[in-house]
Amino acid sequence: MSYTRLLYHIVFRTKDSKNTIPETHEKELYAYLMGIINNKKSTLYRIGGTANHIHLLIDLHPTIALSDFMKELKEYSSKWMAKNPNFPHFEGWAVSFAGFTYNLKEKETIINYIKNQKEHHKSVSFEEEFRSFLIENGVEIDERYFLKE
């Protein structure tokens, strides 16, 4: 038997960072995303976000590549949201996402960060947060493509 703990903090946004996730229905969306995560034999520790992006803290099953997981998560949820009258302005998800692994010792810190998204974004834009997130994790940003698709 193999033993793994693949703790990912994932951030993804709506197409063009538009505010198309109504706060009044975000829990419905979060529950749907949790169902997808559970069906992928993965564990959701925390989900949160704002009208234009979502943060996940998950333990991804070792048989699933992160890119495949995100492709399916966005594909299934897009189809569901398109049929759901509670998300009338949703146009889809942006192509890109950010995902980084963390040590289990950092789990509570990340959970608290995700819990406080609405308060955090009263003073920090998504673009500022995303840029900072990439820099902190050592990702070189190509300005030609940053938040363009």
Score class of each variant (00 low, 15 high):
E106Y: 15
T24I: 12
E75H: 03
E28G: 04
K18W: 03
M34Y: 10
L6R: 13
I64D: 00
T4I: 11
E136L: 12
K74V: 08
P85H: 06
I141H: 02
E140P: 09
Y45I: 01
E75S: 05
F133P: 00
G49N: 03
S78E: 01
S77N: 04
G92F: 06
F90C: 04
D16W: 13
R13I: 02
Q117E: 01
I36G: 01
S2P: 15
Y102C: 07
Y145E: 10
E26V: 14
F130S: 01
N103I: 13
H55K: 10
I37H: 00
K115H: 14
E91S: 12
Y113G: 11
G99F: 00
H89R: 13
P22N: 01
E140T: 15
S123Y: 12
N86P: 05
E23Q: 11
T20C: 11
S132N: 15
L29R: 01
F133H: 12
H55F: 09
L7A: 08
K107F: 10
A31Y: 09
Y45T: 08
K74C: 02
S132D: 15
P88M: 05
L134W: 01
K40A: 06
F97G: 00
E28A: 10
L57E: 03
K18S: 10
H55D: 09
Q117F: 07
S123C: 04
R5Q: 14
T24Y: 04
F69E: 02
A94W: 06
F146C: 07
F12L: 08
E106N: 15
I47L: 08
N86H: 12
Q117Y: 05
K79G: 08
M1I: 14
F100G: 10
K83P: 05
L147E: 08
